[in-house]
């Protein structure tokens, strides 16, 4: 270890000590105007803490019923949307097998329109016979 290296930690300690002293002196020696302004800022900050709490409390009081109303409104909207989408999403009428049979059949369309009557007639004829 060289003499210079041995000296380094001492220099560092001196520097730190001088810096600490200087900075503390400056902190303690702040001018009156700066101190007054710092005090004014502090008073404003402390006052704002109380106001902040009060504001939060008022907001919470307002939000609780408002929250209930919003939930109810959201539920109503959700139900409406669900019911409307269920109508909208209903599949468009398509020709089922039976319809295709009717459409392609050579029988007269009137026959199918009176089909219920023929069925009733058949049942009654069987009953009579």
């Amino acid at each position: 270890m060289t003499a210079k290296n041995k000296q380094q930690p001492v220099d560092e300690q001196l520097l730190l000590s001088a810096a600490k002293h200087t900075l503390r002196d400056r902190v303690d020696g702040l001018d009156a105007e700066t101190l007054d302004r710092l005090a004014a800022i502090r008073h404003r900050a402390v006052a704002s803490a109380s106001q902040g709490r009060a504001r939060e409390w008022r907001l919470a009081n307002w939000l609780t019923p408002a929250g209930g109303f919003v939930t109810a409104a959201a539920l109503v909207v959700a139900v409406m949307l669900w019911s409307s989408t269920s109508v909208i999403n209903e599949p468009a009428p398509v020709a089922v097998l039976e319809d295709i049979k009717i459409l392609t059949d050579s029988e007269d369309l009137d026959f199918y329109q009176d089909l219920e009557f023929y069925q009733w007639l058949a049942v009654n004829e069987q009953a009579v016979s």
Partner: peptide
């Protein structure tokens, strides 16, 4: 009391913070 303790804390910290 809470205001007072906040005031005390800020008073103890303000000079160094400013510096």
């Amino acid at each position: 009391q809470e205001n007072q303790s906040l005031n005390q804390f800020l008073m103890s910290a303000e000079r160094q913070a400013y510096r």
